[in-house]
């Protein structure tokens, strides 16, 4: 799980071209959007593509995406729970 979170942070920073962010500095539970990392809805859509590409997870609904992408921890939990499917 920790390894998954570490990888996710690296992938998010790379995918969104967050040059000024050190992946290790991202708190597992900090909100990704608005206040925390300051991402926006286009970033959310890019993360949808990332999750499909790297983890085979398909998200087709915007509301669902919002719920999953609260934080790195919530994304990791979602990936874990959908791994076996």
């Amino acid at each position: 799980m920790d390894e998954l979170k570490t990888n996710l942070k690296k992938q998010i920073v790379e995918c969104l071209n967050l040059k000024d962010v050190n992946p290790e500095s991202i708190d597992d539970n900090a909100p990704l959007f608005g206040e925390g990392l300051g991402l926006d809805s286009i970033d959310a859509l890019e993360i949808v593509v990332l999750l499909q590409q790297q983890y085979g997870i398909k998200i087709t609904n915007a509301e669902e995406a919002k719920a999953i992408m609260q934080s790195v921890a919530s994304i990791a939990a979602y990936i874990e729970s959908h791994k076996s499917n």
Binding site: I42, L45, E46, V49, Q53
Partner: peptide, 9 residues
Amino acid sequence: RMMNPTSFI
């Protein structure tokens, strides 16, 4: 088939 929304926008 991995398309990035940013390039469409």
